[in-house]
Nucleic acid binder design. Sequence first.
DNA 1: TGACATTAGGACCGATCGGTCCTAATGTGT
DNA 2: ACACATTAGGACCGATCGGTCCTAATGTCA
Lengths: 202, 202
Amino acid sequence: MNTRRAQILDAAAMLISRQGFSATSVEDVIRESGLSGKSHFYHYFRSKEELGYEVLDRQFERFAERGLAILREPMIDPLERLHLFIDALVAAQAERGCQGGSPFGSLAAELADAHEGFRQRIALVFERWANQIQSLLWEARPYLVEDVDSGRLSRFIIATLEGALLMSRVKRDISVLEGIAIDLKRFVGMHVREQARQAQAA
Amino acid sequence: MNTRRAQILDAAAMLISRQGFSATSVEDVIRESGLSGKSHFYHYFRSKEELGYEVLDRQFERFAERGLAILREPMIDPLERLHLFIDALVAAQAERGCQGGSPFGSLAAELADAHEGFRQRIALVFERWANQIQSLLWEARPYLVEDVDSGRLSRFIIATLEGALLMSRVKRDISVLEGIAIDLKRFVGMHVREQARQAQAA
DNA sequence: TGACATTAGGACCGATCGGTCCTAATGTGT
DNA sequence: ACACATTAGGACCGATCGGTCCTAATGTCA
Protein backbone atom coordinates (compact mmCIF):
# COMPACT_ATOMS: atom_id res chain seq x y z
CA MET A 1 0.00 0.00 0.00
CA ASN A 2 0.91 3.58 -0.46
CA THR A 3 0.32 4.43 3.21
CA ARG A 4 3.15 2.10 4.22
CA ARG A 5 5.56 3.91 1.93
CA ALA A 6 4.36 7.23 3.26
CA GLN A 7 4.87 6.00 6.81
CA ILE A 8 8.43 4.97 6.02
CA LEU A 9 9.10 8.22 4.23
CA ASP A 10 7.82 10.25 7.17
CA ALA A 11 9.83 8.31 9.72
CA ALA A 12 12.95 8.51 7.57
CA ALA A 13 12.47 12.23 6.97
CA MET A 14 12.35 12.86 10.69
CA LEU A 15 15.36 10.70 11.45
CA ILE A 16 17.44 12.08 8.60
CA SER A 17 16.70 15.69 9.46
CA ARG A 18 17.71 15.00 13.04
CA GLN A 19 20.71 12.72 12.57
CA GLY A 20 21.80 13.15 8.99
CA PHE A 21 21.62 10.61 6.19
CA SER A 22 24.63 8.44 6.91
CA ALA A 23 23.99 8.40 10.63
CA THR A 24 20.47 7.12 10.04
CA SER A 25 20.59 3.38 9.53
CA VAL A 26 18.02 1.37 7.68
CA GLU A 27 17.30 -0.38 10.95
CA ASP A 28 16.54 2.96 12.59
CA VAL A 29 13.99 3.60 9.88
CA ILE A 30 12.53 0.13 10.32
CA ARG A 31 12.18 0.58 14.06
CA GLU A 32 10.68 4.06 13.77
CA SER A 33 8.17 3.14 11.11
CA GLY A 34 7.15 -0.13 12.74
CA LEU A 35 8.30 -2.51 10.05
CA SER A 36 9.13 -6.11 10.82
CA GLY A 37 12.59 -6.41 9.33
CA LYS A 38 15.09 -5.66 6.63
CA SER A 39 13.37 -7.33 3.74
CA HIS A 40 10.12 -5.71 4.75
CA PHE A 41 11.83 -2.41 4.14
CA TYR A 42 13.52 -3.56 0.97
CA HIS A 43 10.15 -4.60 -0.32
CA TYR A 44 9.25 -0.91 -0.56
CA PHE A 45 12.61 0.60 -1.45
CA ARG A 46 15.33 -0.72 -3.66
CA SER A 47 18.11 0.80 -1.56
CA LYS A 48 18.86 3.30 1.15
CA GLU A 49 19.89 5.72 -1.57
CA GLU A 50 16.48 5.51 -3.22
CA LEU A 51 14.89 6.19 0.17
CA GLY A 52 17.11 9.26 0.54
CA TYR A 53 16.12 10.63 -2.84
CA GLU A 54 12.44 10.21 -2.13
CA VAL A 55 12.75 11.75 1.31
CA LEU A 56 14.44 14.76 -0.24
CA ASP A 57 11.67 15.08 -2.83
CA ARG A 58 9.03 14.80 -0.16
CA GLN A 59 10.73 17.36 2.05
CA PHE A 60 10.86 19.80 -0.80
CA GLU A 61 7.22 19.22 -1.67
CA ARG A 62 6.22 19.98 1.89
CA PHE A 63 8.49 22.98 1.99
CA ALA A 64 6.92 24.21 -1.24
CA GLU A 65 3.41 23.70 0.08
CA ARG A 66 3.83 25.04 3.56
CA GLY A 67 6.72 27.49 3.14
CA LEU A 68 7.15 28.69 -0.39
CA ALA A 69 3.37 29.00 -0.69
CA ILE A 70 3.64 32.12 1.42
CA LEU A 71 5.75 33.70 -1.29
CA ARG A 72 2.92 33.19 -3.76
CA GLU A 73 -0.04 34.48 -1.73
CA PRO A 74 -1.83 36.68 -4.25
CA MET A 75 -3.57 39.07 -1.87
CA ILE A 76 -0.53 40.29 0.03
CA ASP A 77 2.06 42.87 -0.92
CA PRO A 78 5.12 41.02 -2.30
CA LEU A 79 7.67 42.43 0.11
CA GLU A 80 5.31 41.83 2.99
CA ARG A 81 5.07 38.22 1.82
CA LEU A 82 8.82 37.91 1.91
CA HIS A 83 8.82 39.15 5.50
CA LEU A 84 6.12 36.65 6.39
CA PHE A 85 8.13 33.87 4.82
CA ILE A 86 11.21 34.78 6.82
CA ASP A 87 9.14 34.97 9.99
CA ALA A 88 7.69 31.53 9.26
CA LEU A 89 11.19 30.05 8.95
CA VAL A 90 12.20 31.63 12.24
CA ALA A 91 9.06 30.35 13.94
CA ALA A 92 9.62 26.85 12.60
CA GLN A 93 13.17 26.80 13.91
CA ALA A 94 11.98 28.03 17.31
CA GLU A 95 9.42 25.23 17.38
CA ARG A 96 12.11 22.67 16.72
CA GLY A 97 14.11 24.02 19.63
CA CYS A 98 16.84 25.09 17.22
CA GLN A 99 17.52 21.49 16.32
CA GLY A 100 17.57 20.12 12.81
CA GLY A 101 17.65 23.37 10.91
CA SER A 102 16.83 23.35 7.25
CA PRO A 103 16.49 19.80 5.97
CA PHE A 104 18.31 20.86 2.83
CA GLY A 105 21.19 22.68 4.41
CA SER A 106 22.13 19.74 6.57
CA LEU A 107 21.93 17.29 3.72
CA ALA A 108 23.84 19.69 1.52
CA ALA A 109 26.71 19.97 3.94
CA GLU A 110 26.82 16.25 4.50
CA LEU A 111 26.53 14.97 0.96
CA ALA A 112 27.50 17.73 -1.47
CA ASP A 113 31.06 16.52 -1.86
CA ALA A 114 30.49 12.87 -1.17
CA HIS A 115 27.55 11.96 -3.36
CA GLU A 116 27.03 13.50 -6.77
CA GLY A 117 23.40 12.42 -7.09
CA PHE A 118 22.39 14.15 -3.90
CA ARG A 119 24.46 17.19 -4.77
CA GLN A 120 22.59 17.72 -7.99
CA ARG A 121 19.21 17.20 -6.38
CA ILE A 122 19.96 19.65 -3.60
CA ALA A 123 21.27 22.16 -6.11
CA LEU A 124 17.92 21.87 -7.83
CA VAL A 125 16.10 22.49 -4.56
CA PHE A 126 18.05 25.68 -3.98
CA GLU A 127 17.44 26.75 -7.54
CA ARG A 128 13.70 26.32 -7.30
CA TRP A 129 13.66 28.13 -4.01
CA ALA A 130 15.66 30.98 -5.51
CA ASN A 131 13.33 31.13 -8.48
CA GLN A 132 10.35 31.63 -6.18
CA ILE A 133 12.03 34.55 -4.48
CA GLN A 134 13.20 35.93 -7.77
CA SER A 135 9.73 36.01 -9.24
CA LEU A 136 8.50 37.67 -6.08
CA LEU A 137 11.16 40.32 -6.49
CA TRP A 138 10.16 40.70 -10.10
CA GLU A 139 6.60 41.25 -8.99
CA ALA A 140 7.81 43.86 -6.51
CA ARG A 141 9.82 45.57 -9.21
CA PRO A 142 7.66 48.74 -9.24
CA TYR A 143 8.57 49.35 -5.61
CA LEU A 144 12.27 48.64 -6.04
CA VAL A 145 15.17 50.70 -7.28
CA GLU A 146 16.15 50.05 -10.83
CA ASP A 147 19.44 48.22 -10.63
CA VAL A 148 18.38 45.30 -8.43
CA ASP A 149 19.93 42.01 -9.53
CA SER A 150 17.03 39.85 -8.45
CA GLY A 151 18.81 36.56 -9.08
CA ARG A 152 21.78 37.55 -6.99
CA LEU A 153 19.59 38.99 -4.26
CA SER A 154 17.46 35.87 -4.07
CA ARG A 155 20.55 33.71 -3.64
CA PHE A 156 21.79 36.12 -0.98
CA ILE A 157 18.56 35.76 0.95
CA ILE A 158 18.69 31.98 0.87
CA ALA A 159 22.36 31.82 1.79
CA THR A 160 21.83 34.12 4.74
CA LEU A 161 18.83 32.14 5.93
CA GLU A 162 20.65 28.83 5.62
CA GLY A 163 23.71 30.18 7.39
CA ALA A 164 21.57 31.68 10.13
CA LEU A 165 19.68 28.42 10.57
CA LEU A 166 22.98 26.62 10.97
CA MET A 167 24.35 29.15 13.39
CA SER A 168 21.28 29.19 15.61
CA ARG A 169 21.46 25.42 15.60
CA VAL A 170 25.07 25.37 16.71
CA LYS A 171 24.47 27.97 19.40
CA ARG A 172 21.07 26.54 20.26
CA ASP A 173 19.86 30.11 20.44
CA ILE A 174 16.88 31.28 18.46
CA SER A 175 17.76 34.93 19.06
CA VAL A 176 20.72 34.55 16.71
CA LEU A 177 18.35 33.67 13.91
CA GLU A 178 15.90 36.37 14.92
CA GLY A 179 18.60 39.05 14.82
CA ILE A 180 19.82 37.96 11.43
CA ALA A 181 16.26 37.91 10.14
CA ILE A 182 15.87 41.53 11.21
CA ASP A 183 19.03 42.53 9.36
CA LEU A 184 18.01 40.54 6.33
CA LYS A 185 14.72 42.41 6.13
CA ARG A 186 16.61 45.67 6.45
CA PHE A 187 18.86 44.65 3.59
CA VAL A 188 15.91 43.86 1.38
CA GLY A 189 14.35 47.15 2.41
CA MET A 190 17.51 48.86 1.20
CA HIS A 191 16.35 48.14 -2.35
CA VAL A 192 12.99 49.83 -1.94
CA ARG A 193 12.49 53.11 -3.77
CA GLU A 194 12.40 56.22 -1.64
CA GLN A 195 8.88 57.15 -2.74
CA ALA A 196 7.58 53.63 -2.16
CA ARG A 197 9.07 53.70 1.30
CA GLN A 198 7.18 56.88 2.11
CA ALA A 199 3.97 55.36 0.78
CA GLN A 200 4.50 52.29 2.96
CA ALA A 201 5.08 54.43 6.02
CA ALA A 202 1.82 56.23 5.41
CA MET B 1 57.53 12.69 18.33
CA ASN B 2 55.50 15.80 17.80
CA THR B 3 55.98 15.73 14.03
CA ARG B 4 54.13 12.43 13.81
CA ARG B 5 51.16 13.86 15.62
CA ALA B 6 51.25 16.89 13.35
CA GLN B 7 51.35 14.63 10.30
CA ILE B 8 48.32 12.74 11.50
CA LEU B 9 46.49 15.95 12.34
CA ASP B 10 47.17 17.38 8.89
CA ALA B 11 46.06 14.26 7.09
CA ALA B 12 42.96 14.00 9.23
CA ALA B 13 42.12 17.67 8.74
CA MET B 14 42.23 17.25 4.98
CA LEU B 15 40.15 14.09 4.99
CA ILE B 16 37.58 15.42 7.42
CA SER B 17 37.12 18.69 5.56
CA ARG B 18 36.58 16.73 2.36
CA GLN B 19 34.49 13.81 3.59
CA GLY B 20 33.13 14.83 6.96
CA PHE B 21 34.00 13.39 10.33
CA SER B 22 31.92 10.22 10.40
CA ALA B 23 32.75 9.38 6.81
CA THR B 24 36.44 9.56 7.58
CA SER B 25 37.56 6.29 9.12
CA VAL B 26 40.56 5.86 11.35
CA GLU B 27 41.99 3.61 8.65
CA ASP B 28 41.67 6.41 6.13
CA VAL B 29 43.73 8.60 8.42
CA ILE B 30 46.28 5.83 8.92
CA ARG B 31 46.66 5.31 5.20
CA GLU B 32 46.89 9.02 4.43
CA SER B 33 49.43 9.77 7.14
CA GLY B 34 51.57 6.71 6.42
CA LEU B 35 51.13 4.95 9.73
CA SER B 36 51.59 1.22 10.04
CA GLY B 37 48.35 0.20 11.68
CA LYS B 38 45.61 0.78 14.17
CA SER B 39 47.63 0.65 17.35
CA HIS B 40 50.19 2.91 15.79
CA PHE B 41 47.46 5.49 15.51
CA TYR B 42 46.06 4.77 18.95
CA HIS B 43 49.51 5.31 20.35
CA TYR B 44 49.13 8.99 19.50
CA PHE B 45 45.41 9.50 20.06
CA ARG B 46 43.18 8.00 22.68
CA SER B 47 40.17 7.88 20.37
CA LYS B 48 38.77 9.12 17.10
CA GLU B 49 36.86 11.70 19.07
CA GLU B 50 40.05 13.13 20.56
CA LEU B 51 41.48 13.33 17.06
CA GLY B 52 38.40 15.24 15.94
CA TYR B 53 38.69 17.75 18.76
CA GLU B 54 42.35 18.40 18.02
CA VAL B 55 41.72 18.72 14.31
CA LEU B 56 39.04 21.30 15.01
CA ASP B 57 41.39 23.23 17.29
CA ARG B 58 44.12 23.13 14.67
CA GLN B 59 41.78 24.25 11.91
CA PHE B 60 40.68 27.20 13.96
CA GLU B 61 44.26 28.14 14.78
CA ARG B 62 45.13 28.15 11.11
CA PHE B 63 42.01 30.07 10.28
CA ALA B 64 42.89 32.61 12.95
CA GLU B 65 46.45 32.95 11.65
CA ARG B 66 45.74 33.06 7.96
CA GLY B 67 42.18 34.40 7.84
CA LEU B 68 41.22 36.34 10.90
CA ALA B 69 44.65 37.96 10.92
CA ILE B 70 43.46 40.09 8.02
CA LEU B 71 40.80 41.57 10.29
CA ARG B 72 43.52 42.73 12.67
CA GLU B 73 45.97 44.33 10.21
CA PRO B 74 46.78 47.60 11.94
CA MET B 75 47.76 49.68 8.89
CA ILE B 76 44.56 49.25 6.87
CA ASP B 77 41.21 50.98 7.20
CA PRO B 78 38.89 48.65 9.18
CA LEU B 79 36.12 48.40 6.61
CA GLU B 80 38.69 47.86 3.90
CA ARG B 81 40.08 45.01 6.01
CA LEU B 82 36.64 43.43 6.20
CA HIS B 83 36.43 43.56 2.41
CA LEU B 84 39.85 41.95 2.12
CA PHE B 85 38.81 39.22 4.51
CA ILE B 86 35.70 38.46 2.47
CA ASP B 87 37.76 38.43 -0.72
CA ALA B 88 40.23 36.03 0.87
CA LEU B 89 37.43 33.61 1.75
CA VAL B 90 36.11 33.79 -1.79
CA ALA B 91 39.57 33.21 -3.23
CA ALA B 92 40.15 30.23 -0.93
CA GLN B 93 36.90 28.63 -2.01
CA ALA B 94 37.76 29.19 -5.67
CA GLU B 95 41.11 27.52 -5.10
CA ARG B 96 39.42 24.49 -3.61
CA GLY B 97 37.22 24.22 -6.69
CA CYS B 98 34.18 24.97 -4.53
CA GLN B 99 34.68 21.75 -2.63
CA GLY B 100 34.92 21.48 1.12
CA GLY B 101 33.66 24.89 2.07
CA SER B 102 34.27 26.17 5.53
CA PRO B 103 35.71 23.44 7.72
CA PHE B 104 33.50 24.67 10.54
CA GLY B 105 30.26 24.90 8.65
CA SER B 106 30.48 21.32 7.44
CA LEU B 107 31.36 19.99 10.86
CA ALA B 108 28.63 22.12 12.38
CA ALA B 109 25.96 20.73 10.11
CA GLU B 110 27.14 17.18 10.63
CA LEU B 111 27.65 17.12 14.36
CA ALA B 112 25.69 19.96 15.98
CA ASP B 113 22.72 17.80 16.85
CA ALA B 114 24.53 14.50 17.18
CA HIS B 115 27.48 15.28 19.40
CA GLU B 116 27.28 17.78 22.22
CA GLY B 117 31.03 18.12 22.66
CA PHE B 118 31.57 19.12 19.05
CA ARG B 119 28.55 21.40 19.14
CA GLN B 120 29.99 23.41 22.01
CA ARG B 121 33.42 23.63 20.44
CA ILE B 122 32.03 24.80 17.11
CA ALA B 123 29.82 27.32 18.87
CA LEU B 124 32.99 28.68 20.46
CA VAL B 125 34.66 28.93 17.06
CA PHE B 126 31.78 30.98 15.71
CA GLU B 127 31.81 33.14 18.79
CA ARG B 128 35.50 33.94 18.51
CA TRP B 129 35.09 34.67 14.83
CA ALA B 130 32.17 36.98 15.57
CA ASN B 131 34.18 38.73 18.28
CA GLN B 132 36.92 39.52 15.79
CA ILE B 133 34.46 41.11 13.42
CA GLN B 134 32.72 42.89 16.24
CA SER B 135 35.89 44.53 17.48
CA LEU B 136 36.65 45.56 13.91
CA LEU B 137 33.23 47.17 13.69
CA TRP B 138 33.87 48.87 17.00
CA GLU B 139 37.09 50.24 15.62
CA ALA B 140 35.20 51.48 12.55
CA ARG B 141 32.60 53.12 14.77
CA PRO B 142 33.56 56.70 13.81
CA TYR B 143 32.68 55.93 10.21
CA LEU B 144 29.42 54.18 10.99
CA VAL B 145 25.93 55.40 11.73
CA GLU B 146 25.03 55.47 15.38
CA ASP B 147 22.56 52.67 15.86
CA VAL B 148 24.67 49.77 14.53
CA ASP B 149 24.25 46.61 16.56
CA SER B 150 27.76 45.32 15.99
CA GLY B 151 27.16 41.94 17.60
CA ARG B 152 24.14 41.25 15.46
CA LEU B 153 25.86 42.52 12.33
CA SER B 154 28.93 40.37 12.92
CA ARG B 155 26.76 37.27 13.26
CA PHE B 156 24.90 38.30 10.12
CA ILE B 157 28.17 38.50 8.20
CA ILE B 158 29.32 35.09 9.34
CA ALA B 159 25.96 33.46 8.68
CA THR B 160 25.84 34.89 5.18
CA LEU B 161 29.38 33.78 4.43
CA GLU B 162 28.75 30.27 5.74
CA GLY B 163 25.52 29.99 3.82
CA ALA B 164 27.17 31.28 0.67
CA LEU B 165 30.06 28.86 1.06
CA LEU B 166 27.57 26.02 1.35
CA MET B 167 25.56 27.17 -1.62
CA SER B 168 28.55 27.62 -3.90
CA ARG B 169 29.65 24.16 -2.85
CA VAL B 170 26.31 22.61 -3.71
CA LYS B 171 26.11 24.41 -7.04
CA ARG B 172 29.84 24.00 -7.65
CA ASP B 173 29.80 27.57 -8.87
CA ILE B 174 32.11 30.17 -7.44
CA SER B 175 30.10 33.00 -8.99
CA VAL B 176 27.32 32.32 -6.49
CA LEU B 177 29.72 33.10 -3.68
CA GLU B 178 31.15 36.08 -5.52
CA GLY B 179 27.73 37.60 -6.05
CA ILE B 180 26.77 37.15 -2.41
CA ALA B 181 30.08 38.68 -1.34
CA ILE B 182 29.27 41.76 -3.39
CA ASP B 183 25.87 42.11 -1.75
CA LEU B 184 27.34 41.50 1.67
CA LYS B 185 29.80 44.35 1.18
CA ARG B 186 26.94 46.55 0.06
CA PHE B 187 25.03 45.68 3.19
CA VAL B 188 27.97 46.56 5.39
CA GLY B 189 28.38 49.77 3.41
CA MET B 190 24.78 50.60 4.25
CA HIS B 191 25.91 51.31 7.80
CA VAL B 192 28.53 53.84 6.75
CA ARG B 193 27.83 57.49 7.58
CA GLU B 194 26.97 59.72 4.65
CA GLN B 195 29.92 62.02 5.27
CA ALA B 196 32.36 59.13 5.64
CA ARG B 197 31.13 57.73 2.35
CA GLN B 198 31.90 61.01 0.62
CA ALA B 199 35.34 61.07 2.14
CA GLN B 200 35.97 57.52 0.94
CA ALA B 201 34.88 58.38 -2.60
CA ALA B 202 37.30 61.32 -2.69
C1' DT C 1 76.80 -3.71 26.28
C1' DG C 2 72.69 -3.66 29.02
C1' DA C 3 68.24 -1.54 30.77
C1' DC C 4 64.25 0.86 29.47
C1' DA C 5 60.97 3.91 27.39
C1' DT C 6 59.18 5.12 22.83
C1' DT C 7 57.61 3.82 18.32
C1' DA C 8 56.05 0.37 14.99
C1' DG C 9 53.53 -3.73 13.28
C1' DG C 10 49.73 -6.83 12.78
C1' DA C 11 46.35 -10.14 14.30
C1' DC C 12 42.08 -9.87 16.21
C1' DC C 13 37.35 -8.49 18.56
C1' DG C 14 32.43 -7.35 18.95
C1' DA C 15 29.22 -4.34 16.90
C1' DT C 16 26.96 -2.42 13.11
C1' DC C 17 26.38 -1.43 8.42
C1' DG C 18 23.57 -2.13 3.76
C1' DG C 19 21.71 -5.80 1.49
C1' DT C 20 19.99 -10.86 0.10
C1' DC C 21 17.43 -15.16 0.39
C1' DC C 22 13.91 -17.97 1.52
C1' DT C 23 9.63 -18.79 3.68
C1' DA C 24 5.16 -17.72 6.04
C1' DA C 25 1.05 -15.06 6.43
C1' DT C 26 -2.57 -12.32 4.42
C1' DG C 27 -5.33 -10.45 1.29
C1' DT C 28 -8.37 -10.60 -3.16
C1' DG C 29 -10.75 -11.88 -7.16
C1' DT C 30 -12.93 -16.09 -9.15
C1' DA D 1 -12.26 -23.49 -2.06
C1' DC D 2 -8.87 -22.11 -5.47
C1' DA D 3 -4.81 -19.70 -7.32
C1' DC D 4 -2.00 -15.75 -7.04
C1' DA D 5 0.03 -11.40 -5.92
C1' DT D 6 1.16 -8.54 -2.05
C1' DT D 7 2.95 -8.00 2.55
C1' DA D 8 5.41 -9.69 6.55
C1' DG D 9 9.13 -12.13 9.15
C1' DG D 10 13.75 -13.58 10.22
C1' DA D 11 18.10 -15.83 9.48
C1' DC D 12 22.10 -14.70 7.33
C1' DC D 13 26.18 -12.50 4.48
C1' DG D 14 30.43 -9.91 3.56
C1' DA D 15 32.35 -5.55 4.58
C1' DT D 16 33.65 -2.03 7.58
C1' DC D 17 33.65 0.34 11.78
C1' DG D 18 36.29 1.92 16.30
C1' DG D 19 39.15 -0.14 19.41
C1' DT D 20 42.36 -3.76 22.04
C1' DC D 21 46.22 -6.90 22.82
C1' DC D 22 50.54 -8.59 22.35
C1' DT D 23 54.94 -8.48 20.34
C1' DA D 24 58.83 -6.61 17.63
C1' DA D 25 61.95 -2.93 16.38
C1' DT D 26 64.34 1.33 17.51
C1' DG D 27 66.13 4.76 19.94
C1' DT D 28 68.79 6.68 24.12
C1' DC D 29 71.17 7.21 28.23
C1' DA D 30 74.39 4.75 31.62
